[in-house]
């Protein structure tokens, strides 16, 4: 009940926030005129501004945020640690590396097809579990090895970057900061289908993953197939974060603020003993929407990468978690 009310409230908030986000920025729009332009009334310039430039960003932000929020929720549950995110574990770096390898091998094709980043993310997840010797019920090893893996992959990306032709390097570098500037529907249109499917699986998984909050024996006695559920969750989380990274780079920031904060906030909202995948996805969507809007105006006329902004918040949030919660982060 509480979860449903929370979800409903979040949906209403997001819907209310959309006109505000469409109106924010240069152009002197009010939420009302922005909404009107969205539905095609008003002069042509305004309609283009809202429909052609800002609407794709809003849609991107919502999809990316939802994917990251859900992915974070799954990974935190599997690793049993509030600080585990696709970014900290090196899964995002795997996606970035895959994109860069594509740019290397197939020059002149832009940043490659939508599926290349999720494959990189999945490969990184598999390498991570292999190096850690299994997932286990205590996230310690997976986290430590994930930190090392993310640094390793980032260094390979750095090396590649120094070799890439300048214009390609700039494209990959800007993309690697995670910005929604210049978003259009082309990538989103294809990626939205796998994201939706993966989200549906994630939400269904959430019900089972609740049992991972118990000790291993009790979880299995209550009918959980622990190992299979852990693998499923990790796979879906890697796919989701890979897809998100593929759409617009690591908008969640290098520390993965969105994937970090959404599940924590969601757990507070829906109460103990749940794995609130759907609520986390909604919160993630809201966070990225707000972050991207802020990134547009905070240093106007310049634009900051939303990913840079979220990483600042992310670090502060981790510090706050470390300060407050001792039990959940080892």
């Amino acid at each position: 009940m509480r979860a449903r009310l929370t979800g409903l409230a979040l949906v209403v908030t997001i819907i209310a926030a959309i006109p505000l986000c469409l109106a924010t920025g240069p152009g002197g729009l009010s939420p009302r005129t922005a909404l009107a332009a969205l539905f095609g009334s008003g002069d042509g310039g305004r309609v283009f501004l809202v429909r052609g430039l800002r609407l794709p960003r809003v849609c991107d932000a919502l999809v990316i945020g939802a994917a990251l929020g859900a992915a974070g929720c799954l990974i935190q549950t599997v690793a049993r640690n509030r600080l585990a995110t696709p970014a900290i574990l090196g899964i995002n770096e795997g996606a970035t590396l895959a994109v860069m390898v594509w740019v290397f091998c197939v020059p002149g094709s832009g940043l490659g097809p939508w599926w290349i980043a999720p494959i990189g993310a999945l490969a990184a997840a598999i390498v991570l579990v292999g190096l850690s010797g299994g997932i286990g019920m205590r996230g310690f090893r997976v986290l430590m090895i994930g930190i090392a893996l993310s640094i390793l992959l980032r260094s390979i990306v750095d090396m590649g970057m120094s070799v890439l032709a300048v214009n390609h390097a700039t494209a990959v570098y800007n993309w690697s900061l995670g910005s929604l500037l210049g978003a259009d529907f082309s990538r989103l249109r294809i990626a939205v289908i796998p994201v939706t499917l993966a989200l549906a699986v994630a939400v269904a998984l959430g019900r089972r993953l609740v049992l991972l909050g118990f000790d291993l024996t009790t979880a299995r006695a209550l009918g959980a197939d622990v190992q299979r559920d852990q693998w499923l969750a990790l796979t879906v989380a890697a796919l989701l974060s890979g897809l998100a990274v593929g759409i617009a780079g690591p908008v969640g920031g290098p520390v993965g603020f969105v994937a970090l904060a959404s599940p924590v906030a969601a757990s507070h909202l829906v109460g103990p003993g749940r794995v609130p995948v759907l609520v986390a996805a909604l919160i993630g969507a809201l966070i990225v929407l707000v972050a991207d809007t802020l990134a547009r105006v905070i240093a106007a006329p310049n634009e900051i990468a939303a990913g840079a902004l979220t990483s600042v918040f992310g670090g502060l949030f981790v510090l706050w978690l470390l300060y407050r919660r001792t039990g959940e982060i080892g």
């Binding site: 009790t218 209550l222 009918g223 103990p272 003993g273």
Partner: peptide, 23 residues
Amino acid sequence: LMAQAPEAPDDLSVAGLVRFGRH
């Protein structure tokens, strides 16, 4: 099976725990 020294998710209430029996 009631395990030896079982652990539950944080902050769970008694009713919340017992409901997991229906899982």
